[in-house]
Design a protein around this nucleic acid. Structure first.
Lengths: 331, 331
DNA sequence: CTGAAAGCGCTAACAG
DNA sequence: CTGTTAGCGCTTTCAG
């Protein structure tokens, strides 16, 4: 069950181990010798050991990715973007879900570091910040997604959405539909959600409309459907004249939408509905969304790893509103 | 920029490199010495190099996964199942999309082999069969998903759905709704699709209903939405009295559903609609589906890698029909 | 209990 | 052009 090594090939081809290495790496070798080596390698079904190679390079060529939860459309597209450029660069991707579980986040970042990943892309929370800083300082480029860090050292990048604009776009669209009283569901007091709420306030302010604190439900970060339902119910109970419900996280789109319908509300007649992140069925369902260029963001994140600029890049992307039926004109 | 090594720790703790190794691996060392070593390691922020460790073990502890396309709900859940047991076992997952592109499949399997993955899970086509066989024979357990191989050597496993039963369930449900003339969209002449069609025939046969060949569209494996639309159109044109449209691949659910709606057909009044694989919005949309226990299948696949039984396991899972509105009683 | 020394599979100077 | 000789960072005998 022992694997054939470069030494076996060398013996079979009657050359030194160094010559085999040269042939395999395309260095100058007499053609006849090279052919002999290649034949031997093929005959012995030799498969080079990438692990050993990485030991020399000091690091592997794999890109590490830590995702909260792949089920979210944003993260899924992000992942595909990463995979695209990784594949184009002959890099593999090492992946793990963290489910926003702090213990898991810390453990997996450590694991990735031990694997000597070429770079690391994380969508996790602050629990990994210190470690990621150290990694970047130590020469492993890291990209934080959907968050920015204070005083990032060179090699520590971030890729995020212009959340304030996203919020403002939502507010302006709502106002333009003749709706004024709105409710908001946010997933945790994290930077992206805070930014979107700020944008919402700015957009509404232009029209002197107000967003009361009791019209905003900031859920915990990892809430399940029944809790979202409860939050929607409370919001509606507390604000009976609500004309639009805004969901600030793509992860809760389904839950919020369902809660609205189950309460017997018609969209958009009884209430307008607006959410983040486009998804496959959104068009058929006529749901108005603000999207992020998630696929592109994944690509850019991966490029930062591959190109490894010795600065700290803070990339911000612009959102886009796709207007569909769910938040149409009132009356 | 040089990483601290076990040697640095040894020097700092004034012990030999072997002693450090022992402490780090929990072998017998005098407690005072051990503490000194651990302190030094912490102080120097020592992070062991998993690559070098793997070199000794002969292979890494990473599980390789090759997926056609993560956007498909089945594959996404499968992936989550794999990730679950990997995380529980302290394994990382190395992942790559292949998009059913033969060149990419072959290249990535090779890459995974070079990475000396602990085992490989593939959802790809026959292009990788030979290589996967060799890997299994060479001691790297492999699991093929949604397909079975001829005479698998020990270590080469498969995880798949009982496709014939899935097809039969669909047929029986359709008949029980008083529908008889059906159309079928399949994604390629691959074993899973063939099996489902066979099941459909068997189920319909019980009632002497027939499934004509011109009511089945077998698309290419990697078709885009417009092509699906065309297929649906042709099917409908050729069979004007069609009472139910069956989609045999979760990847095409959206495209087929949209094509039906865009043609002005009401579901289920004008035509019943039935598809494979449950997905988040299916309930809200009232779409009847036959599901696979995809998450569990992922877990079992990963377990086969982790436990590595020295036989060839062929795991088959039973489908389940979730009846919703899209294929209700006729009239 | 601990250190010295021999590798794991491969690359990278050096000589020839 | 090609072979010899050191390592890469770590584990693992084998002596002390």
């Amino acid at each position: 069950m022992k694997r054939t090594t470069i030494g076996d090939v060398a013996a079979a081809a009657n050359v030194s181990i160094a010559t085999v290495s040269r042939v395999l790496n395309g260095l100058a070798v007499k053609e006849v010798t090279a052919t002999r080596v290649r034949d031997a390698a093929a005959r012995l079904e030799y498969t080079p050991n990438a692990l050993t190679k990485s030991i020399f390079a000091g690091r592997s060529s794999t890109i590490g990715v830590l995702i909260d939860d792949l089920r979210s459309p944003f993260y899924l597209d992000l992942m595909r973007g990463i995979d695209d450029v990784a594949a184009a660069n002959g890099s593999l991707v090492m992946f793990s879900n963290t489910f926003r579980h702090t213990g898991r986040e810390v453990a997996q970042v450590q694991a990735m570091d031990e694997q000597r990943v070429r770079g690391l892309i994380v969508t996790s929370g602050a629990s990994v910040d210190e470690r990621v800083r150290r990694m970047a300082a130590g020469g492993t480029p890291c990209v934080v997604v959907a968050r920015t860090l204070q005083d990032p050292p060179p090699g520590l990048h971030s890729v995020s959405l212009d959340n304030v604009t996203a919020g403002r776009m939502m507010a302006e669209h709502i106002l333009s539909c003749g709706r004024r009283t709105i409710g908001v569901i946010a997933s945790g007091a994290v930077p992206s959600q805070i930014g979107r709420i700020e944008g919402l306030r700015k957009g509404l302010g232009k029209d002197n409309a107000l967003l009361n604190d009791d019209a905003i439900a900031i859920l915990d970060d990892d809430v399940t459907t029944p809790e979202v339902t409860d939050a929607v119910t409370s919001l509606l109970d507390a604000n009976p004249s609500m004309e639009a419900m805004v969901c600030l996280s793509g992860r809760y789109t389904l839950a919020v939408h369902t809660a609205l319908i189950d309460r017997g509300l018609s969209i958009p007649e009884d209430i307008g509905f607006l959410t983040m992140d486009d998804f496959a069925w959104a068009q058929n369902l006529g749901i108005t969304v603000v999207t992020q260029p998630s696929h592109q963001m994944g690509q850019e994140a991966a490029k930062l790893i591959v190109e490894n600029p010795r600065v700290s890049a803070q990339l911000t992307f612009e959102p886009e509103l796709i207007s569909r039926a769910s938040c149409g004109e009132l009356r």
